[in-house]
């Protein structure tokens, strides 16, 4: 593995309250998330993807419209 790849795979730990951890564990049951870490990573990326002014570049309304069109086009169930 190259140095660049090793750097990309480097992880660290973040402390969160145990009660929050347990809540997240319950929340991800039955979803595609396989661990609390993967869920927290997903949520943090979504926050970072927000515009600098805090506005989402891809709003819930946009998402619903896209999903409706993708279903009609055969790309989503």
């Amino acid at each position: 593995m190259s140095e660049k790849q090793e750097n990309k795979r480097r992880y660290t730990t973040v402390s969160i309250p145990t009660t929050l951890f347990k809540k997240i564990e319950r929340r991800i049951e039955g979803t595609g998330f396989t661990s609390v870490s993967s869920y927290v990573t997903y949520v943090l990326r979504e926050i970072l993807a927000e515009d600098e002014n805090g506005k989402e570049p891809f709003s819930k309304e946009d998402e619903e419209r896209v999903k409706e069109r993708l279903r009609a086009l055969g790309y989503l169930e």
């Binding site: 993807a49 570049p57 891809f58 709003s59 946009d62 419209r65 896209v66 069109r69």
Partner: peptide, 21 residues
């Protein structure tokens, strides 16, 4: 529709910039 897909495009580009993998 146009705005929604334009915003999805921007969002996807941003996701790729952010994801370290």
């Amino acid at each position: 529709d146009r705005r929604a897909f334009e915003n999805l495009n921007k969002f996807a580009l941003k996701i790729m910039r952010i994801r370290e993998d």
